[in-house]
Design a protein around this nucleic acid. Structure first.
Lengths: 223, 223
DNA sequence: TCTATACGGAACTTGCGAGTTTCGGATATA
DNA sequence: TATATCCGAAACTCGCAAGTTCCGTATAGA
């Protein structure tokens, strides 16, 4: 019995990557980064202490400093390593209509995940102007994936002939993200399914050239 | 010797109005609050020190603490006293068309003022979840006035018969604000006049039921 | 001119959090 | 069992910023 797996894993942990670079799938590193994101979302960057993160990850503070040189770099790494599972192009809905695709994107886990990311964003906004690296990381990990999905769906709608090619997709793909951010961060109201559907039907689709509610009378459309 | 004025004024400052109350036109108070807003916009709440504000206002730190019990209350007061000149209903443009009104709203000073408010907002976002009072103040002083103007303009357009009464004005009036916030805070791109005009022509007006590009090239191939 | 008040400035005290060091105890190899 | 390594926990150092106190001075009223 040669437990190569374990040997390999231990070796990976111990000796490799003195810099930072790679992130392993499921090492203690990941636990710590997750803990950092949790605390970050709850208290914001300045409210977050390294002791909090260590306690949350059930690790010693010294362990954190053995792996990251400073609190700033820990947070940067945590944001940069935020999972971007969204961008998987094959998993996107394809219902045949833009409205169907956009509505299919609304699922409870997706909403919660979005709110979490927004909380993280709220915790670091004030840093972004002083830390371009963090700004880039947040942009790539939080902002861009959302817009990309919408952009893809809308491009499909153009290819399919559902909407005009003149539609300003680059702007329109950010409307939902911007409205959700605004609602959560500024208005501090919850993001409900109704809000999102209303946004699709009353703003995004009309702006894309699809006229409003063909069945505007009674609510109907139960499911 | 009964200098009633001074007694009254001192009393007002020192003990009265725990809420917010009046802001004098041109006292040292206003200078200090302005300085606080400047520093807040530049460094964010946590980066801001009371010494910075005092230095900026050419005041002693003790003077600040004679008037506000803590840094938190100083900032709260500063945000609450942000001038809301926008909401003057008489000064609103009235060009006869919704597009004309919205475009008339874009003026360089207005853009700069908006960016400044956004910077202030960025500096306090992470506090809002822990300080409902600050959240309310920011809402009332920064977020709401913007939406109110748009709402008014759109209501006029409905009254005038330019757009349908079915249009979701409450949502639509926030689109520009949300998009600008998103662009400044998340994308960290400048807010140009072109961006705002494109937003009006490609998103807001179409969403309000006004078809695109009155002076567009060809296209307009509605089925 | 005299006096009270508030001011600016600067020197404090205090608490907290970043980053460091130490140490006892796991775990794994031989 | 012996040994090397990494870990968690806790006890440090140290700098910074909130809040306080004190003092010399400017100003306004009498």
């Amino acid at each position: 019995m040669t437990p190569l797996d374990l040997v390999d894993e231990a070796a990976l942990r111990a000796e490799d990557s003195p810099k930072l670079g790679r992130k392993r799938d499921h090492t203690r590193d990941a636990d710590i980064l997750d803990a950092a994101l949790e605390v970050l979302a709850e208290t914001g960057y300045d409210g977050m202490t390294v002791d909090m993160v260590a306690a949350r990850a059930k690790a010693g503070k010294a362990t954190l400093y053995r792996r990251w040189p400073s609190k700033a770099e820990l947070v940067l790494d945590a944001v940069a390593c935020l999972k971007r599972a969204d961008s998987d192009p094959a998993k996107l809905p394809d219902t045949g209509t833009l409205r169907g695709d956009l509505v299919a994107l609304i699922k409870t886990p997706s909403i919660e995940d979005g709110e979490r990311k927004l909380q993280i964003m709220a915790g670091i906004v004030s840093m972004l102007s002083r830390s371009p690296e963090l700004a880039d990381a947040a942009q790539a990990a939080i902002v861009e994936p959302r817009a990309r999905v919408n952009r893809l769906l809308m491009r499909r709608a153009i290819d399919r002939g559902e909407i005009s090619a003149d539609v300003d997709i680059d702007t329109l793909s950010m409307v939902s993200t911007a409205m959700v951010s605004h609602r959560v961060l500024m208005l501090r109201k919850p993001v409900t399914r109704e809000f999102l559907i209303s946004l699709i039907d009353n703003v995004i689709l009309p702006a894309a050239g699809i006229p409003r509610a063909p069945a505007s009378s009674a609510s109907s459309s139960s499911r």
